[in-house]
C-alpha cells in the first residue's frame, strides 16, 4: 500500500543501484560482534544494498560548504563538580550479571 509513496521518493531521484560484495556482511557483522546465520547473509546483503541505494539520493545535494550538525541543542557542554557522589554499591552493579564471582564479572578467558 505504500508503494506509490516509495515510487515517489525513488523515481524523483537518480538512484545508482548498489551492490555489496560478499565479504561486506561478514566483515561488518564481525565488527559489530553479531553472529549471522550463513543462510541469512545473502538476504541481508540485498537489504543493505537496497537501503544504501535509497540513501544514495543524498548525493544529489551539494553539501561541500555545510558544517555537519552533531547536536541540535544550542547550549554548551555542562560541567559537573569533582565530587564523589556515586559508586560503593557493587551489589547494584553486579545484580544483573549473568556470571559473577566475589564481586567480579566473569567472562570466557581472554588471552592477551
Amino acid at each position: 500500500m505504500l508503494l506509490p509513496l516509495q515510487q515517489l521518493f525513488v523515481t524523483r531521484l537518480v538512484i545508482t543501484p548498489m551492490t555489496i560484495d560478499k565479504d561486506t556482511i561478514p566483515r561488518i557483522a564481525r565488527l559489530a560482534r553479531l553472529e549471522i546465520a550463513p543462510e541469512r547473509q545473502s538476504a541481508l546483503s540485498e537489504e543493505l544494498a537496497s537501503i544504501l541505494s535509497w540513501v544514495e539520493q543524498l548525493n544529489a545535494l551539494d553539501t561541500s560548504a555545510v558544517e555537519p550538525l552533531a547536536s541540535v541543542t544550542g547550549h554548551d557542554l555542562p560541567l559537573r563538580d569533582d565530587i564523589v557522589t556515586d559508586g560503593n554499591d557493587p551489589d547494584a552493579v553486579l545484580s544483573n550479571a549473568p556470571e559473577k564471582t566475589s564481586n567480579f564479572f566473569v567472562v570466557p578467558k581472554v588471552v592477551e
Binding site: 548525493n59 545535494l61 555545510v66 555537519p68 550538525l69
Partner: peptide, 8 residues
C-alpha cells in the same frame, strides 16, 4: 553527509 543534510 547525513549530518550535513541534517543541518540543511
Amino acid at each position: 553527509k547525513a549530518q550535513q543534510v541534517r543541518r540543511l
